[in-house]
Design a protein around this nucleic acid. Structure first.
Length: 188
DNA sequence: ATGACGATTTACT
DNA sequence: GTAAATCGTCATA
C-alpha cells in the first residue's frame, strides 16, 4: 500500500483535511503490533489568522513548535489534564497549519486497541482523545515525521467511502467568526 | 510563583 | 443539558 509522502502534506489545511478522509492511519507499536484505521473525521486549523488555532497570531511555544515544522510532521498535544490530540502538520515549513484527526474506523489491531482504551464495547477511535488512547499516541510522538517514521504514518490507497459532510469545528471557545467557519469534514 | 484555562470525555440529572 | 475530572502550559507578576 502506498504511503503518503512529503508532497501529500504540502498544501493548506483546508485542502488536506478532506483529502485525509478514508486514508489509513497506521501506528506500529514497539513490539511490532500494527494498529490502523480509516480516517472518518478531520478539522483544519488554517494558520496564524485562525482564532481557534494554537498558533493564532503567530504564537510559538515549546508546546506548538511542531506546527512550524515541515509538512508531514505530527503535532501531538496534551489537554484537559488527561487527553492527547493528534494533528498532521501541513502547508509549508515555517507556517503553522495543521489538521486535527478526530475519528477513525478501526481496522487493524482491535484487540490491542480495546486493551489500550480499557473498554470492551465502545467506539474505539471516536473523538480525538479516544483515538489517541486507542492508537497509543502521546507526546512521545510529537514531531514524528509521518513521511519517514516506522511508528506512525498514513497509507493512501483507500478510497473515501460514503458521503462527506462539512460542518463547523467542535469544542472551540470564543473564536469569533472562526467559530462558525465550516472547517470540519466528516464521512457520513 | 501563581492562576486561569483548555481543538475532551464521561457520567449523571 | 450540566458538571466533574485533572494537569501541562502560558501569561502575568
Amino acid at each position: 500500500m502506498r504511503r503518503a509522502g512529503r508532497r501529500f502534506f504540502t498544501r493548506p489545511a483546508e485542502a488536506l483535511a478532506p483529502a485525509l478522509l478514508g486514508r489509513r492511519l497506521v501506528r506500529v507499536l514497539d513490539d511490532g503490533t500494527r494498529l490502523a484505521g480509516a480516517i472518518l473525521e478531520a478539522e483544519a486549523y488554517v494558520g496564524v489568522r485562525d482564532r481557534a488555532s494554537h498558533a493564532f497570531g503567530g504564537r510559538r511555544t515549546p508546546r506548538n513548535e511542531s506546527m512550524y515544522g515541515r509538512p508531514g510532521l505530527a503535532y501531538v498535544y496534551f489537554t484537559y489534564g488527561m487527553h492527547h490530540c493528534f494533528n498532521v502538520v501541513c502547508a509549508r515549513e515555517g507556517f503553522p497549519a495543521a489538521v486535527l484527526v478526530r475519528a477513525l474506523v478501526p481496522e487493524e489491531g482491535l484487540e490491542r486497541m480495546r486493551a489500550l482504551r480499557g473498554v470492551e464495547r465502545a467506539r474505539l477511535c471516536a473523538g480525538p482523545g479516544n483515538l489517541c488512547r486507542a492508537m497509543a499516541i502521546d507526546r512521545g510522538l510529537d514531531g514524528e515525521d509521518l513521511v519517514t517514521s516506522g511508528r506512525l504514518f498514513i497509507e493512501l490507497s483507500r478510497p473515501v467511502r460514503g458521503r462527506v459532510r462539512r460542518t463547523a469545528r467542535i469544542g472551540l471557545g470564543e473564536a469569533g467568526a472562526w467559530r462558525r467557519r465550516r472547517l470540519r469534514w466528516v464521512v457520513a
